[in-house]
Write a protein that binds this DNA or RNA. Structure first.
Length: 278
DNA sequence: AGGGCAACCTGGGGGC
DNA sequence: TGCCCCCAGGTTGCCC
């Protein structure tokens, strides 16, 4: 579920509550909650202090006063909620970290909840600035070192359709199915157009559109359709009302009035305006 | 090397 | 009510 705007909403929410806190307990409740590649069990983080909450694309990690880090990926349905330890346990609770008390009455917890179990936590070493599992992930558009011209050149050389190219996290990270469709609508580019047939100007428009739509989505707290995405307080984001094509099959294009189409390819749905996006 | 596609899961909703 | 099929914000690994 969560794409860059949702993960960023979670990151900034976590930062607000947990920076500087000490982790006093860590428990996993599901065999897939901690990735097989983890260099240590989740309990390795007990006793550490949270120094920073970082993100690249859809990957999130807690920097600790340790030489390892705790990485989180929310997959399709993962949530990280900050809750009092006394709060009732959620049915899809996969893991929790208990933090030294913010309230005199008791401690807080970071709850990792994930219905579909595609999300995970992982204890990892750093490879340069980022955790090991993030090393192959491209810079996201909101990082200072993001080089849009490099991304354009890379996409221009590809023989696949533009949509899978912008979903490829090794080319540019953070864009998922919702914001890919929205970016292509804004750029007036059909999702199946082959990359090398697009001009650099057109590719640039796609990337800058993705950046602007994701920036707006962050301001709205992300996109929530149902119970699968919530911020750390359990609140929904309200960007779904601003979506122009995603999930709007059959509705009128707000630009030209044509009916929005949905097609399936590359194993996912794509929504677009057949008149605006040739 | 690069592309395409199935696999990994659980649950909600619609049709019959 | 129940069953079956389709659908869902992602990533990976395997096969060609």
């Amino acid at each position: 579920m969560p794409e860059l705007p949702e993960v960023e909403t979670v990151r900034s929410g976590l930062e607000k509550y947990i920076l500087g806190k000490k982790i006093t307990n860590a428990e996993s409740f599901h065999p897939r909650a901690v990735k097989p590649g983890s260099i240590a069990p989740l309990s390795a983080v007990i006793g550490s202090k949270i120094k920073a909450v970082k993100r690249r694309g859809k990957f999130l990690w807690l920097e600790l006063d340790r030489d390892f880090t705790l990485v989180a990926h929310l997959g399709m349905s993962g949530q990280l909620l900050v809750q009092p330890a006394l709060a009732p346990l959620q049915s899809h609770l996969r893991a929790k970290l208990t933090l030294a008390g913010r309230f005199k009455s008791g401690s807080d917890q970071i709850r990792f909840i994930d219905q579909r179990t595609f999300g995970w936590l992982c204890v990892e070493e750093f490879v340069g600035e980022v955790p090991a599992s993030v090393a192959h992930i491209a810079i996201d558009p909101f990082e200072e070192s993001f080089d849009i011209n490099k991304v354009i050149t890379r996409i221009k050389s590809k023989k696949c359709a533009i949509k899978p190219a912008i979903l490829n996290q090794e080319i540019v990270s953070g864009i998922g199915n919702i914001y890919a469709d929205e970016a292509l609508w804004r750029a007036k580019i059909h999702p199946e157009v082959v990359c090398e047939d697009l001009s650099e100007i057109e590719i640039k428009k796609v990337i800058t559109s993705a950046m602007s739509v994701m920036k707006s989505a962050i301001k709205s707290g992300g996109t929530s359709f149902d119970e699968q995405y919530k911020n750390v307080n359990g609140e929904s984001g309200y960007f779904s009302r601003s979506l122009k094509v995603y999930g709007r099959e059959g509705e009128k294009c707000s630009r030209c009035g044509s009916a929005i189409h949905r097609i399936a390819f590359a194993n996912r749905s794509s929504h677009f305006c057949p008149r605006c996006q040739r």
